[in-house]
């Protein structure tokens, strides 16, 4: 089973990876050490591939730094679930192929065990399975392709026309 990492409202990108820890200032190879380095220092050493972030509203607000979701991807975050996301973060995470779900799961406690099937959007918890609201099909196709770059290479176009 994977574990749930709980976060509050308005988690900003300076909390996810502070500007001082950007690859530009340090090095690309070190990025996996930095997610939540100051906001929650036990996160990076403790997180396991497939773990799930469950947060409050407006997750990822602030900067456009793609290295924030990139750092979460590097440590293997399997999905992020929050009632709402800041748009640049949402877009960056989608582009990198990280599954995001818009749902308010404030009853799930930090450290709880859970398992997600991101394809079907089903979250298995100790209280049973939950069907998470699914984003539109064209967004799911971007995850399934592994992000916007493989999607673009595969289709030769942006998702806009497919979404009409």
């Amino acid at each position: 089973m994977s574990r749930i990492w709980r976060f509050g409202d308005d988690v900003n990108t300076d909390q996810i990876v502070p500007g001082r820890y950007a690859p530009y200032m340090t090095s690309e190879a070190e990025l996996r050490k930095y997610p939540f380095i100051e906001a929650r220092p036990e996160f990076a050493p403790g997180v396991q591939p497939g773990d799930i972030i469950v947060a409050g509203r407006n997750f990822g607000c602030g900067s456009s730094r793609e290295y924030a979701p990139q750092a979460l991807k590097l440590v293997g975050v399997g999905a992020i679930i929050a009632p709402s996301f800041a748009r640049i973060f949402y877009r960056n995470a989608l582009n990198l192929g990280i599954p995001l779900f818009e749902a308010d799961l404030d009853w799930l406690s930090d450290g709880a065990e859970a398992q997600i099937d991101s394809g079907s959007g089903v979250l298995h918890t100790s209280r049973g399975a939950i069907q998470l609201p699914q984003p539109p099909t064209w967004m799911q196709e971007i995850w399934q392709a592994g992000g916007i770059v493989p999607y673009f290479r595969e289709h030769g176009r942006f998702p806009g026309e497919a979404a009409r």
């Binding site: 456009s64 640049i88 877009r91 960056n92 582009n95 992000g147 673009f152």
Partner: peptide, 10 residues
């Protein structure tokens, strides 16, 4: 509008 590195590269 602001975007991340992948969108800007595209």
């Amino acid at each position: 509008t602001g975007m991340g590195a992948t969108d800007i590269a595209l």
